[in-house]
Simulated scan of single mutants.
Amino acid sequence: MSPSDVIVIGGGIAGIGAGAELAAGMSVCVLEAEPRLGYHATGRSAAIFIRNYGNATLRALNAASAGFLETPEGVSDRSLLTPRGELLVATEAELGDLETYGAGAEGLEWLTAAQAVDLVPILRPEIIAAATIEWDAQDIDVDRMLAGYARLLKHRGGQIETGARVSAIRREAGLWQVTAGGRDYRAPVIVNAAGAWATEVAKLAGARPVPLRPLRRTAAILPAPALHDVRNWPLFSSASESWYAKPEAGKLMVSPADEDPVEPQDAWADDMVLAEGLHRFEQAVTMPVTRVEHSWAGLRSFTPDRSPAVGFDPGCEGFFWLAGQGGYGVQTAPVLSRLTMELVTGATPGLPDSVLEALSPDRFHP
């Protein structure tokens, strides 16, 4: 096969978004191990844009992605966002968690217990010591976003190969030679957007791995509580993130907000973890959990400081990291896709130096 300028490994929102941005001026080939795009983390996302979610670096990335999500030129003809809101409720024991979340946050409104219950009538007012809402939190149409980026990538001449699991990587004469799905691909640059498998890809390439931990996150669909229309409720969560719930097609998606370390895999829901999380949810609401309609799990991969790793590997020529997005991958994909293009092509990045330093893979290998 004729060489590309860039091989992107991983067909989730990170890899497809970066591929689409790179394809504006380079030949790009995206290799996805699964039969379809977005099979793992992207397809199992909570699909919510929360500006104040994450550490200071991630909040900067959230802010930088907002404009694109509202006006996704080239990806969709209308906004990818719809109003939702995020309500955080704290017991007395969780007041410190809520104060920590509010530190440096913007656009939060503090509520009384009665006001929180007005928004979500199944909450138990007697246990709420404080509450806050971010009205600007919004649902993200993840399917339309991923499909739009894939369409843009192809329109710009890029290739997408599904069912192409990488089995070997070597570098010869300034080119990476990648074997995937029984075929060979060549390019001077690899973008490692393999999510939970990013460490395995790095080892195949001989790069020193960035410290990444895949963590399982479980969710379940519950019937809506009797006599309640949940469609306009905000996402609501405990301040310590021991559970959260989000309206989903007239029902409730509830998650234990678990972060259990696991090996890279097609994640599945652990019944005990789910049961414990649903019990915590039940303690905060008047709604008994009598039936689970469907449950699943996904993987969120974090670095030790919980910021992504984005940039060229300091010791492996032509090997670019785009990994460790954790639970923020969808909402930061627009800015990180653009940043990947800027760093790979040598363009001037649009982000401040402080953010670039906080994202650099160099920080793990002084």
Rank of each mutant, 00 (worst) to 15 (best):
F319T: 01
S237Y: 00
P304E: 07
A47L: 04
R156L: 08
R216T: 09
F236K: 02
K251T: 01
E317F: 01
F236S: 02
D362Y: 01
P121F: 09
S354W: 13
A249F: 10
A347D: 15
V6K: 07
A173S: 14
E70R: 14
L80N: 04
A249D: 13
V273W: 01
T332Y: 02
R44Y: 04
P225A: 07
F236W: 11
L339P: 04
E357A: 15
V120Y: 06
G74H: 08
D136V: 01
F364A: 05
P121G: 10
L95W: 01
A56H: 09
A20G: 07
G85R: 08
E109Y: 02
A164E: 05
G74M: 11
Y244T: 00
V201E: 05
Q283K: 13
G311S: 04
Q159R: 14
Y101L: 14
I50S: 13
A194W: 08
S255K: 06
L351N: 08
K203V: 13
T340H: 03
R280W: 08
R124S: 05
T199D: 13
A93G: 01
R338H: 09
E70A: 15
G346M: 10
H228E: 15
V230Q: 00
R300N: 01
L119A: 14
R300I: 03
G318N: 07
P349T: 10
A226P: 03
T132N: 08
D362M: 09
V8Q: 05
L153F: 07
V201F: 08
P209Q: 06
R51K: 11
E34N: 11
E263Y: 04
P352V: 06
A131T: 04
D136I: 00
L356S: 07
A130R: 13
P334I: 12
L152Q: 15
L88K: 10
A56R: 13
V330H: 04
A168D: 14
S337E: 02
G181T: 02
A46I: 03
V289L: 09
E86P: 00
S240M: 00
A47T: 02
E92H: 12
D136W: 00
V355M: 02
V120A: 02
T162L: 01
L356D: 07
T218M: 02
P264F: 12
V254G: 00
R51H: 09
H228A: 11
V28K: 06
I7V: 15
G102L: 15
A130M: 03
S237R: 07
A220D: 05
E21A: 14
L343K: 05
E357H: 13
H294G: 00
K203C: 13
T286N: 11
L81R: 02
G315M: 09
G158K: 10
E259W: 00
H155W: 01
S4E: 13
M26W: 10
A116Q: 07
S301K: 03
H155K: 12
Q283H: 12
M253I: 08
L61Q: 03
L299G: 03
V273K: 08
A23I: 07
T82H: 06
P211W: 10
F320L: 09
E32M: 09
V285S: 06
G158S: 11
A63G: 03
G181Y: 02
S295D: 12
G104F: 06
L61K: 03
Y39E: 12
G38F: 06
Q177Y: 00
R144S: 14
A297S: 11
D229K: 06
A205K: 06
T42G: 02
I140F: 02
G96H: 09
I190M: 12
